[in-house]
């Protein structure tokens, strides 16, 4: 049997296992920053974003432009950021990557500190059903976790 047939057969056998493994991805990634205020967590997050080769894009309150600025919710802030190389690669692979790019982390102030939450791109790629996009989403997930864990320190 030619090698390339063996290769595709092996791939065929392996991918369902990958698919099953994908099923265990949680929809949300959450990292706690105990003892921090939302302003402290925000500053740490911006530093961590830069240190991981991402660019800060913008931030907003959850009710931004819905209520006067002075009434905006103060205990929840959304931060958008991007690595344009990765965005270009992901959009070239599957234009639907625009559904989860640029990256977003939501900061939520709680009684004990701040929670940082992001939608898990690896879960999203399962929903989109494109195995070619999935490796990039796994990499993105690791970046999210690294950024949030660093910001939590």
């Amino acid at each position: 049997m030619p090698n390339w047939i063996k290769f595709f057969f092996a791939l065929w056998l392996l991918l369902p296992g990958v698919s099953v493994a994908q099923g265990v991805e949680p929809p949300l990634l959450t990292v706690a920053a105990p003892g921090k205020t939302i302003d402290e967590a925000y500053e740490s997050l911006l530093r961590a974003i830069g240190q991981h080769n991402y660019t800060f894009v913008r931030d907003q309150a959850i009710d931004s432009r819905l209520v006067p600025q002075q009434w905006e919710t103060k205990n929840l802030r959304i931060v958008y950021f991007c690595n344009f190389n990765k965005m270009d690669r992901a959009l070239s692979t599957d234009i639907r990557a625009a559904q989860f790019l640029p990256c977003r982390i939501t900061l939520i102030e709680t009684a004990g500190g701040v929670e940082m939450v992001a939608i898990n791109p690896a879960w999203t790629s399962i929903v989109l059903g494109n195995p070619l996009l999935h490796p990039q989403c796994l990499e993105l997930k690791q970046d999210y976790l690294a950024i949030m864990e660093e910001a939590a320190l």
């Binding site: 595709f8 057969f9 065929w12 991918l15 399962i126 929903v127 989109l128 059903g129 195995p131």
Partner: peptide, 25 residues
């Protein structure tokens, strides 16, 4: 024959990695 086999394998795989949910609207 081998090409047909490969096509069948890939088609079968494609069916198995269908999204767990529907497409977006």
């Amino acid at each position: 024959m081998t090409r047909l086999l490969m096509a069948l394998l890939l088609a079968g795989q494609a069916l198995m990695v269908q999204p767990v949910q529907a497409d977006p609207q």
